[in-house]
Design a protein around this nucleic acid. Structure first.
Lengths: 250, 250
DNA sequence: GACGGGCGTCCCATATATTGGACAAACCCA
DNA sequence: TGGGTTTGTCCAATATATGGGACGCCCGTC
């Protein structure tokens, strides 16, 4: 009755959603309260409202909660309406089918890189990054392009120190990364070989808004052993598609 | 300072989302306030929070708002996690490609029918119902299946009188509709010819939970002039796929 | 130029949503 | 069986979010 801060219900709802996205699997209400450091009674109240609205669903086996069907409908409405996403979809399909590779639409979210949409070619069965899963920017070719409009100071301030450490333990020098960002911006594309994964090659091209800032990227994910000629061909297609997408989004 | 009801911010947020889904295009905040009969100051407060959380986006040209990128990520997380949706996707692809028709996953939402996911065959360019758009239950084959576990009283209470009127003005007799529902439940499928659209044939089969209730349907949408033999073949594939999906969802 | 209407922001009062706590029932593990 | 933990529900108190109103601004129209 004297200490504890009070938080708005709406903000708490946002926290719930973000925690569920991070977890990617149902969470029990008690566990949710612990992770968000929120009172249990508050969470029961909020979760019940959200379940009634179908924004969340309770798993009837153990009472844990996850996103509900309404989310799917809202998300689809967004994807169908947003010009970037709407125009990207057919392009991704063409890229993936025509080049038999995994094609992705990527963007910046908070201080990380996320895949927004992804298509795979027919013969390919590689595991591709899940949509919406945050990935450190220095791990990716797209990350270098997405930071093109930021100053070195902004970039240094944005990226957590840990994010320069690759999954295999190697560490990227922040200075080298800044150089990469500048070079990628000038080149208009970025290619990484064996970066986030020793056997993967990523090719990325920027989707730019009218002010020239990279608001998203299109990228290919292919095995690292592809011949040079094929990589160049993939890059050509990618740049053509991203230029087209840039024109659609003004 | 004495009249007006007060509403919870969370409930208002839900109202905002539902109104945006209905509208399917950006709405200005003033207009939103009018439609929801909510104070403008409240909406500015809520919308600003939601925009900050990326659940909503403001269109920079005219200040109207619509769903934001976070919705897409949450919705995708749902679709990838929910067993029904996850297993339905490859089935829809197989159905659509193998039969060159539009295949849809449908379910009940409030007192209407909605498409949850949809794939079209290669040669087909028919306009298909948008995902998430509510359609009166009596207009559809799936609607008849989805009500299979409800009593006649429940059905009569659920369906608004206007929903028995088809787009072309014809009116369905509620008694006939109840008969259709019972027959569809017993048959284990439902076919409609020229119902919601004079030139369209809908074939639907139920996805049942372990208790035998139709929690969703798979359906084909094809031109009405298809030969009987093809319709039977489509129905056979549909029933096989929906049985498979039912097994996956227990 | 005056006018009407919508937009975005700010401010205060109060109705109420948030909160901590307490409770019984269910659960798990020893 | 029995102690420790978790679950879901309920309650009363108060910090605060909601709602009403007022303000200046911009933009079309008359």
């Amino acid at each position: 009755m004297s200490s504890g801060e009070r938080q708005s219900g709406v903000d708490r709802v946002v926290d719930i959603f973000e925690e569920l996205l991070r977890s990617r699997e149902p969470i029990r209400i008690g566990e949710l309260a612990r992770r968000l450091e929120a009172p249990r009674s508050t969470l029961y109240n909020l979760v019940n409202r959200l379940v009634a609205a179908d924004l969340l669903e309770v798993m009837d086996d153990d009472g844990s909660v996850f996103f509900g069907r309404a989310m799917q409908l809202y998300g689809t409405a967004y994807a169908e309406t947003n010009p970037l996403q709407r125009h990207a979809r057919p392009l991704l399909e063409t890229l993936a089918a025509g080049s038999d590779a995994t094609a992705q639409l990527c963007a910046l979210r908070h201080d990380k890189y996320v895949v927004l949409d992804s298509r795979s070619g027919p013969s390919l069965f590689r595991i591709t990054t899940d949509i919406g899963v945050p990935v450190p920017l220095p791990w990716t070719a797209s990350g270098r392009l997405l930071l093109g409009h930021s100053s070195p100071e902004q970039i240094s301030a944005l990226i957590p120190a840990d994010d320069y450490t690759l999954p295999d333990g190697r560490v990227i020098d922040p200075q080298d990364f800044l150089t990469d960002v500048a070079k990628s911006r000038d080149d208009g594309y970025c290619v990484t070989l064996g970066l986030s994964d020793r056997f993967t090659c990523c090719l990325a091209a920027p989707v730019r808004n009218p002010r020239g800032e990279a608001v998203a990227t299109l990228c290919f994910v292919v095995p690292a052993d592809q011949p040079e000629a094929r990589r160049l061909e993939l890059l050509r297609r990618l740049i053509e598609a991203s230029d087209r997408l840039s024109r659609h989004c003004r």
